[in-house]
């Protein structure tokens, strides 16, 4: 007993306990559900056999059904637009704001902190508030745009099939910018000031300093950030549920919402699982970019 205690206190026992705990946690709450999910995507799952693991094996039938679904390509396209457009706009907006807040003006850090307010609010509530603001006939957004004579009649941001996806992308960008702002700010402040001074004395103007110093030194941070941000956008569910629920007629439906609809609205759990496994493959690709970026960061 004493020897075991000594092993924990003085040798590598403590580290082993720490590793063991996180391994158990990962297995129980990530590994097992993951295996369970992959398993279900190859099975015929209904409400009667959901409690058992021993269910009829159907091979790739679920995947074939998903691919044959008339909405499949629309949803793939929507998901790509949603993730790509969100990432680009979040990155550009977050970077611009981070650079703005690097200018040391009164209240800069205080204002930057305020951006986090959006994160305190639950995503579903944010979606509801935006839904009211964007409402076609009674929303404040149309009221403003009309008062400024930018639009003549009401714009149906959420119920016009050609606008719905862009609108939820816009709200998602709004929601994601503080995340980018904060992490880019951290990256920017890690660049030593004297590099900029040296570049200035070397003859670089503001644009040349940005392209020659800031961008190359931020490259790995930005790459990691975009990978992380894209995964967060792929998880975005609350906003879509609150704003459009994928409608009208799937015009704003994306993979993660579709997977939920299949599993929990029409109880085609095998199909829902297959969609989520397909998404997982995409996430693995993005995650490997993230890992590569953070690895070269450590090497630098």
């Amino acid at each position: 007993m004493n020897r075991a205690l000594d092993f924990v206190r003085d040798r590598s026992g403590f580290e082993m306990i720490l590793i063991g705990l996180s391994a158990v946690y990962l297995f129980l709450f990530a590994g097992a559900p993951f295996v369970f999910n992959v398993l279900m995507s190859f099975q015929k799952v209904d409400l009667f056999n959901i409690a058992s693991i021993d269910r009829p094996f159907v091979g790739f039938a679920n995947y074939q059904k998903i691919l044959a679904n008339p909405d499949f390509w629309l949803i793939v396209r929507n998901t790509v637009v949603f993730v790509a457009l969100s990432s680009v706009c979040q990155l550009a907006g977050g970077f611009a704001l981070a650079l703005f807040f690097m200018q040391d003006f009164a209240g800069a850090s205080w204002l930057r902190g305020l951006f986090l307010a959006a994160w305190i609010t639950p995503g579903y509530a944010i979606g509801q508030v935006w839904k009211w603001m964007l409402a076609g006939d009674t929303g404040i957004a149309n009221y403003f745009l009309r008062s400024l004579h930018i639009i003549d009649g009401p714009v149906y941001w959420l119920s016009d099939p050609s606008l719905a996806l862009l609108t939820i992308t816009f709200v998602n960008v709004w929601l994601g910018i503080p995340f980018y702002l904060l992490l880019i700010s951290v990256g920017l402040s890690a660049i030593p000031r004297d590099l900029y001074e040296a570049a200035e004395l070397d003859g670089a103007n503001a644009v040349q300093r940005f392209c020659g110093i800031t961008l190359p030194l931020m490259r790995d941070t930005l790459l990691a950030l975009v990978a992380l941000g894209a995964i967060l956008t792929l998880q975005q569910f609350d906003l879509i549920a609150a704003l459009t629920a994928g409608g009208p007629v799937n015009s704003s439906n994306v993979a993660q919402f579709w997977s939920w609809q299949l599993s929990f609205q029409s109880y085609q759990i095998g199909l829902g699982s297959a969609v989520s496994v397909l998404m997982l493959l995409v996430v693995v690709v993005i995650a490997s970019i993230y890992v590569a970026a953070t690895r070269s960061e450590r090497a630098a």
């Binding site: 030593p192 004297d194 001074e197 040296a198 004395l201 020659g212 030194l217 630098a300």
Partner: peptide, 28 residues
Amino acid sequence: PRRRDVAMVFQSYALYPHMDVERNMTYS
């Protein structure tokens, strides 16, 4: 500073970490 035509050697050296020695020296 960039139009004063002065060069400075910093205490921290302030070398550009993403450039090799040659590119550090030739940046200006």
